[in-house]
Design a protein around this nucleic acid. Structure first.
Length: 446
DNA sequence: TCTGGGGTCCTAGGACCC
DNA sequence: TCTGGGGTCCTAGGACCC
């Protein structure tokens, strides 16, 4: 750990839900739940208004509906989240070149590489208030919580303490007193399985864990985890902020509304996933050697099968063919709940094709997927534009109709109108400066 | 009220090699 | 005759994070 608080952790508050409230004025101050809308969906983010009702991330959407039936349930608009995230990360990079994003809504910043040279509490407080104001402005009004401390561990814990719109600076030397009374689960990496093992050993708090020898922690949790926990509960953390982290794998997976048994359909979905993964590999100028399929069966048992090619590829035909063989290795007769395709063992170069590319169209491209497995034209929360009414968002869709609310971040709450699903005056819209790939590969729930 | 999607890292066993 | 030891790669599964 450092001798001064020079590590910043910034976490945008209820990020996905906040972006929705920014762009949908009628939802400001109301419970908003972003996540899977289908029968097997889970909550990605709940707005603070929804959290009041006990709704939280990772809860099934069905349970969230039971707790908060009047909330707005929206599919994610990842294009909008990515665009907003990029603007926030730019603000952080203006502060310091060493920024390590952890996800769209979180990043570490190494302040020793910034223009700041006074790390006293008052100086930091001023600098962080300025930063939060810049983030708020760049993001179109989204609040973030900041933690500043002598290590990543403590900065991350600190950013959580005053949420939302929080700011916490933890002075050098006070770290251990801060975390000692907390539950061990505050330590990142201590999840349900680990905390259960610790609990059975009588370890509940950080202070409890501090009293256990390193050898005992290793015995309980294994080598890597034991050693690291022994250090972390002492606030002993030297991990550097790393701005250049390489992608290790690219994957696409999909949970179906109902279990799939049709082998032909499974093969088509494997092909589609393979194509999607390869598209993303090419966009990132990557290729990979190892193809992995993930299969979750009807009973939630999950299997993976992988195989490694002699050379990296980004060719959908190659990935697709191999992925199909791997799927054939698993007995899927009783029903498949989830199917995924991943490529790992990535290289930032592509093997020259020694034999030219113009042979073997391979297997015939699989036909169009049944309607239930195609991407819906209109999903709740999605952006649309109408020829005469202008931009709006999908309030609800079904039974051949779409209901749209016409409002944007820059308008007051707007009116609601309903259209036929094939109305030629209405079409889906792409938000702002998104250059990423399509939003959630959601399936229609018939 | 049954449990998402995109990732990362770790473990353990076997193959293979020197 | 009684079987080394270590390193690396690959595979399957699991824990965890947001």
């Amino acid at each position: 750990m450092r001798s001064e608080p020079t590590v910043l952790h910034l976490d945008l508050d209820a990020f996905f839900a906040s972006v929705e409230q920014r762009d949908k004025p009628s939802l400001r101050g109301k419970p908003v739940i972003v996540g899977g809308i289908g029968p097997r969906g889970v909550v990605s983010t709940a707005s603070y208004e929804a959290r009041t009702f006990g709704v939280h991330s990772a809860m099934s959407t069905a349970q969230a509906r039971a707790l908060c039936p009047h909330a707005a349930f929206l599919n994610g608009r990842f294009g909008a989240y990515r665009a907003t995230s990029r603007r926030v990360m730019r603000v952080l990079r203006d502060l310091s070149p060493i920024v390590e994003p952890l996800s769209l809504d979180e990043a570490f910043v190494d302040l020793t590489a910034s223009a700041l040279d006074d790390f006293s509490p008052t100086a930091l407080e001023t600098a962080m208030r300025d930063l939060k104001a810049s983030v708020h402005e760049a993001s179109g009004g989204i609040a973030g919580s900041a933690g500043v401390a002598t290590s990543k561990l403590i900065a991350k814990i600190a950013s959580d303490l005053d949420k939302p719109d929080g700011l916490r600076i933890v002075g050098a030397g006070t770290e251990r007193d801060l975390i000692r009374p907390m539950q061990v689960t505050v330590i990142p990496g201590v999840g349900p399985a680990t905390s259960e093992r610790l609990r059975r050993a009588g370890i509940h708090t950080v202070a409890d864990a501090e009293r256990v020898t390193e050898a005992e922690l290793v015995r309980l949790l294994g080598n890597a985890h034991g050693h690291s926990l022994h250090k972390l509960v002492r606030a002993d953390d030297d991990r550097p902020v790393e701005s250049q982290r390489e992608t290790k794998s690219v994957s696409v997976e999909d949970t179906f509304d109902t279990d799939l048994v049709d082998a032909t359909l499974l093969r088509s979905i494997v092909a589609r996933h393979a194509a999607h993964v390869c598209e993303r590999l090419r966009a990132a100028r990557l290729s990979g050697r190892t193809v992995t399929v993930k299969i979750r069966l009807y009973d939630f048992t999950t299997h993976s099968r992988s195989a490694t090619l002699p050379a990296p590829t980004d060719d959908a035909r190659v990935v697709s063919r191999l992925a199909r063989q791997l799927v054939d290795d698993v007995d899927t007769g009783a029903g498949v709940r989830l199917l995924g395709v991943a490529v790992s063992g990535l290289a930032d170069w592509i093997q020259e094709d020694l034999f030219g590319d113009d042979e073997e169209p391979d297997e015939p491209p699989s036909g169009p997927l049944p309607a239930v497995h195609q991407r819906a034209r209109y999903v709740p929360g999605g952006d649309v534009v109408h020829r005469t009414y202008g931009p709006g968002w999908v309030w609800g869709a079904g039974l051949g109709r779409v209901t749209v609310r016409f409002e944007t971040a820059a308008t007051p709450p707007g009116p609601v109108r309903t259209f036929g699903i094939d109305d030629p005056d209405l079409e889906p819209a792409r938000p702002e400066d998104d250059d990423g790939d399509a939003d959630d590969p959601a399936t229609v729930s018939a």
